[in-house]
Design a protein around this nucleic acid. Structure first.
Length: 556
RNA sequence: GCCCCCGUAGCUCAGUGGAUAGAGCGCAGGCCUCCGAAGCCUGAAGCCGCGGUUCGAGUCCGCGCGGGGGUACCA
C-alpha cells in the first residue's frame, strides 16, 4: 500500500516540526498542534502547503514566518520531497520531486483496479439503507435522489474494504398502508361494477391504483366482490404492496442499483423484536408511561425532543419500530455501522433517532445523510409532486429519456444538503453537451489513442516514465494523484458529489493536454512514456466513474 | 413561533478557515492536410445585507432579508 503525496508531505513536515520544537524548546505547543496539509489553489505555491506555523504563532508568541522558517529548514529533502520553503504570511510550501511524480505513473498503472483503494475499512460490516420509498406507489424523481447517493456511498465504503450491504426498508405497516389498501379495494370493486364507491379522505385516487386493482382482479377474479373496502384493506394492501415492490426493484435496476436486502417493517413486529427493544429501553430507564402511551424520555439526550413509541391504542409508532430496526441491525445482525440516506423531510425523525441511539448506547455507530429535495422542472415549470393524486414524474420515464448515466450524474452533481433542480428538457436537449458525456468522451478518446497506437505497432510496454518531465505531463500526474485523497475524504465525510466534480476536472485536464501534446508520435520512447501516462488517466477515470456507477465507454 | 437545509456568474452547480473564487450551459470571437471538434483556446460576467470571531471568512458565530423542508400518538 503506497501512501498518498499528502501522507508523504505530512510525515515530512511533522518530522520537521518535531525537530524544530526540540531544537528551539517549543515544548508542548509544538506537539499539540495538528499538521494539516492542503493543496494550494495556486500552483505557484507548490504541491502542498502547511499552515502549522500560523497556528503556532499565538501559543509561541512568535511571528509565523519565523516559525515557518525554523520548521522548513529542518524538513529532510529527498524521498519525494524536492523543496520546502517558508513564505509570508507563514505558509510552508512543499514541492514534490519531478522524478517521484513521474514514477507514480508506474505505481498507479501497476495498481490497476486497486488504485485508490485502501483496506482501512476491512473487517467492518456496514449497512447503507437508502431509497426506502413508501411502497404505496411507484418511484418518482422526487424520492429517487437517495438512490445514487446511497449507492455511490456504498461503493466508496466497499472501495476501502468494508463489507457493505445495501438495504431497502419497506414500511409495510401503519395507517398509510391501511388507507392505501382501502383505495385499492375501492378501485377493485369499481372494476367489478359496483358504483357509489369513494376513495377515502387522504386516500390514493391516482391512476396507478386502478392498475394495481386490475392486476388483482386478473389474478383473483371477482373473489372479493362481496367485501367492503374496510374489510379488504389489509389483504389488498399486501397484494398491492408485492406488486409495488416489484416496480421499485425494476426502477432501481434501471438505475443501476441492486439491493442486497429488502427488509419489512412488519417482520420486527412478528418476530417480537420490537417488544424486546421496548423492554431493553425500559430496563435502562429510558421509558416513560404517560397519557396511556409509551414514550422515549428526552432528558439527558442530544436533542430536546420527545417521542412516542407505542400509541395509547397499543399500536407501535413508525418511529418506535424504526428504532427497533436500527437496534436489530447493529446488535443482532452484526453491522458495525449503519448509515441511513434519508430525505430532508425526515429531519425531525433523524433528531429523534439521535436520541434513541444515545439511549441504546449506539451513538457513533449510526449516521444519517440527509438530502434536500429535488425540484423537478418540466418545460421550465416547477412540477409539484403529489404521488397519491397521480401527479408525478416517474423515475423510470426520466431514465428512459436521458439514460442511466446522465440520470445518475444529475442526481450526483450537487451536494446532498442542497436542493437540486432537475430540468428534464435541459437534460434531453443538451445531452451531447452534457457533463457526463464530456467525461465519458475523455475515456473513449483514450481508448481510441490506444487503438491508434496499436495500428502503428506502438504500446506502452517498456515505457520509461522518467521521460515525463513536461509541466503539462506532471500536472496531469498531480491531478491523477488526487484521486486516492478524494476517495479517503468521501469515506469520512460521505460527500459523494465530489466525484462528479473531480471527474470533470480530470477529463478537462486530459482534453487540454491531448490538444497540445501529441501522444503517439515519431519519438517512440516518448510515445511509450505518454501512453503510460494516458493509461494512468484512463484508469483513474474508470475508477471514478466506477464509483459513480456511470459507464466508461471504449467508444461512443 | 420553534427546528433543519440553502442563498456564489444570466441559468445549473463546485469551492477541506488560507495566499489571484472555478466548471458546464448560455453569450461574443477564434481553432480540424496531424492520435475522435461529444474537443481546444480567448473574452464579458459573481460570494444577499450588516455586525462579530480570526494572522486570514464565500466558508465559523449573531442579527436581518429571501427560498425550501419539518414541526402528528402520519409514514
Amino acid at each position: 500500500m503506497t501512501g498518498t503525496g499528502r501522507d508523504l508531505v505530512q510525515a515530512a513536515v511533522a518530522a520537521g516540526l518535531l525537530a524544530a520544537s526540540d531544537a528551539l524548546g517549543w515544548g508542548d505547543a509544538g506537539r499539540a498542534v495538528a499538521v494539516e496539509i492542503e493543496r494550494p489553489a495556486d500552483k505557484a505555491h507548490g504541491d502542498y502547503a502547511a499552515n502549522v506555523a500560523m497556528r503556532l504563532a499565538r501559543p509561541l508568541k512568535k511571528p509565523p514566518l519565523e516559525i515557518a522558517r525554523a520548521i522548513a529548514e529542518r524538513v529532510v529533502l529527498g524521498n519525494g520531497i524536492a523543496s520546502v520553503e517558508a513564505v509570508a504570511p507563514g505558509f510552508i510550501n512543499v514541492r514534490l520531486e519531478h522524478a517521484w511524480l513521474a514514477r507514480q505513473v508506474e505505481v498507479i498503472v501497476g495498481a490497476g483496479e486497486r488504485f485508490g483503494r485502501t483496506d482501512t475499512l476491512t473487517g467492518q460490516k456496514i449497512q447503507v439503507e437508502f431509497v426506502s420509498a413508501n411502497p404505496t406507489g411507484p418511484v418518482t424523481v422526487a424520492n429517487a435522489r437517495g438512490g445514487p447517493i446511497g449507492d455511490v456511498l456504498a461503493n466508496v465504503l466497499a472501495f476501502h474494504g468494508a463489507t457493505v450491504e445495501r438495504e431497502y426498508y419497506i414500511n409495510d405497516a401503519g395507517t398509510q398502508l391501511d388507507v392505501f389498501g382501502r383505495s385499492v379495494a375501492v378501485r377493485y370493486l369499481e372494476l367489478g361494477g359496483k358504483t357509489g364507491m369513494t376513495i377515502p379522505e387522504d386516500g390514493y385516487p391516482a391512476e396507478y391504483v386502478v392498475d394495481l386493482a386490475r392486476a388483482i382482479r386478473e389474478e383473483h377474479g371477482g373473489a372479493f366482490d362481496d367485501g367492503a373496502p374496510e374489510e379488504l384493506a389489509e389483504r389488498f394492501a399486501r397484494l398491492a404492496l408485492d406488486q409495488v415492490i416489484e416496480w421499485h426493484k425494476a426502477a432501481m435496476r434501471k438505475f443501476g442499483i441492486s439491493f442486497d436486502a429488502f427488509y419489512r417493517e412488519t417482520s420486527l413486529l412478528e418476530s417480537g423484536y420490537f417488544n424486546k427493544t421496548i423492554e431493553a429501553l425500559r430496563a435502562a430507564g429510558e421509558i416513560e408511561d404517560r397519557d396511556g402511551a409509551v414514550w422515549l424520555r428526552s432528558d439527558d439526550k442530544v436533542e430536546d425532543i420527545e417521542s412516542v413509541l407505542i400509541r395509547k391504542t397499543g399500536v407501535p409508532t413508525y418511529f418506535g419500530v424504526d428504532l427497533a430496526y436500527h437496534r436489530e441491525a447493529l446488535i443482532e445482525r452484526g453491522f458495525d455501522r449503519k448509515i441511513d440516506v434519508w430525505g430532508a423531510n425526515t429531519h425531525g425523525h433523524a433528531r429523534r433517532m439521535t436520541n434513541a441511539m444515545k439511549a441504546l448506547e449506539l451513538e457513533g455507530r449510526w449516521v444519517v445523510v440527509l438530502y434536500q429535495y429535488v425540484k423537478f422542472l418540466h418545460e421550465g415549470v416547477l412540477v409539484n409532486m403529489a404521488r397519491r393524486r397521480g401527479q408525478f414524474v416517474l423515475l423510470e420515464d426520466v431514465i428512459d429519456t436521458v439514460g442511466k448515466d446522465v440520470s445518475r450524474w444529475f442526481f450526483l452533481m450537487a451536494g446532498a444538503d442542497r436542493t437540486l433542480d432537475f430540468d428534464l428538457e435541459l437534460a434531453v436537449q443538451q445531452s451531447n453537451e452534457n457533463p457526463a458525456y464530456y467525461v465519458q468522451y475523455a475515456h473513449a478518446r483514450i481508448a481510441s489513442i490506444f487503438r491508434t497506437a496499436a495500428e502503428k505497432g506502438q504500446s506502452s510496454t517498456g515505457a520509461d516514465v522518467t521521460l515525463l518531465t513536461d509541466p503539462a505531463e506532471l500536472d496531469l500526474v498531480r491531478l491523477v494523484l488526487r484521486f486516492p485523497e478524494l476517495a479517503l475524504e468521501i469515506r469520512d465525510k460521505h460527500n459523494v458529489h465530489l466525484l462528479t466534480g473531480y471527474a470533470l476536472e480530470l477529463a478537462g485536464a486530459f482534453h487540454a493536454f491531448y490538444k497540445s501534446n501529441r501522444v503517439v508520435g515519431e519519438d517512440v520512447a516518448r510515445s511509450k512514456a505518454r501512453l503510460r501516462l494516458v493509461e494512468a488517466v484512463g484508469l483513474t477515470l474508470r475508477q471514478t466513474l466506477g464509483l459513480l456507477g456511470v459507464s466508461a465507454p471504449e467508444s461512443m
